[in-house]
Simulated scan of single mutants.
Amino acid sequence: MAQERTGVATAQGNPLTLVGPELKVGDKAPDFKVSKNLLEQASLADYAGKVKLISVVPSLDHTGVCDAQTRRFDEEAAKLGDNVVVLTVSVDLPFAQSRWSSAEGIDNVIILSDYKDRSFGQSYGVLIKEIQLLMRSVFVIDADNTVQYVEYVGEMTEHPNYENAVAAVKALV
């Protein structure tokens, strides 16, 4: 049975239960399986040798914060260079993600879906038990797959600290 963490996250002040471990700086980044589209999967190994900024959002086209978070990291990704990959993970279905990113002009971020088995959510401790969405968070993982930055946003409706996440990436390249 997966670890459950309470008292660490809320949605509009209502308590949430997060499933999975709390990752810390220095931890080895857990592997995961997510969907690139309905037929293709991706894992941590697909981004080997690159610095990875992983932006996690509950749902791309249902909240303004998710939209803003993805746009901000898309803008930043354009400036971070070829040794960095920026991933956005949500449980939105891949065709909804594709439709949203095309409509919004998102082209520097790779958008991935954890809809099938919530592998990413459980491995990174961001799966919300009550609603089966992912809690807003940001992870920076170095080229050797060691976690170098973690932010679990405590309140789902708040923004992550964009500046700190980007600074963590820049310190690695």
Rank of each mutant, 00 (worst) to 15 (best):
E104T: 08
G105Q: 11
L16P: 01
V8A: 00
A167R: 13
P94R: 11
A68Q: 12
K170M: 10
D142S: 07
P94F: 12
S101R: 14
P30N: 09
L80A: 09
A48M: 01
K52F: 00
V150Y: 07
S35Q: 15
G81Q: 09
S90C: 11
V126Q: 05
A77Q: 09
I131M: 10
Q132W: 09
V150D: 01
P21R: 13
D61K: 15
I106S: 08
F139M: 03
E155G: 05
V173I: 15
P30D: 08
D67S: 13
L60G: 06
S102V: 07
K24D: 00
L134C: 05
V166F: 05
V109F: 07
K116Y: 04
L23S: 06
S102W: 07
M135H: 12
M135E: 09
S123P: 01
N108M: 07
V140Y: 07
T70H: 05
V85K: 08
V153K: 06
P15M: 09
R72F: 03
G7D: 04
S43A: 12
V57F: 07
K36N: 06
E22A: 15
G125R: 11
V140E: 01
T146D: 06
K50I: 02
D31I: 08
D74P: 05
G49D: 10
D114S: 07
E155I: 03
S119K: 06
D46M: 07
Q69Y: 02
L93A: 11
T63M: 03
A45C: 02
E4T: 14
A78H: 07
T146E: 14
D92Y: 08
Q12V: 10
P21S: 11
N83R: 15
V56M: 08
L127T: 04
A103Q: 12
V34T: 11
E104M: 15
Q148T: 11
K129V: 02
M135I: 00
L16I: 14
I131F: 08
V65W: 07
K116P: 00
S43C: 03
F73T: 04
V91G: 05
T70P: 03
K24S: 12
A171V: 09
V166C: 05
H159K: 14
K33C: 01
S113G: 04
V91T: 15
V19W: 04
L87F: 05
G125P: 01
T157C: 00
N161L: 02
G7R: 12
A42L: 06
A143D: 11
E4W: 03
E76R: 04
Q41C: 00
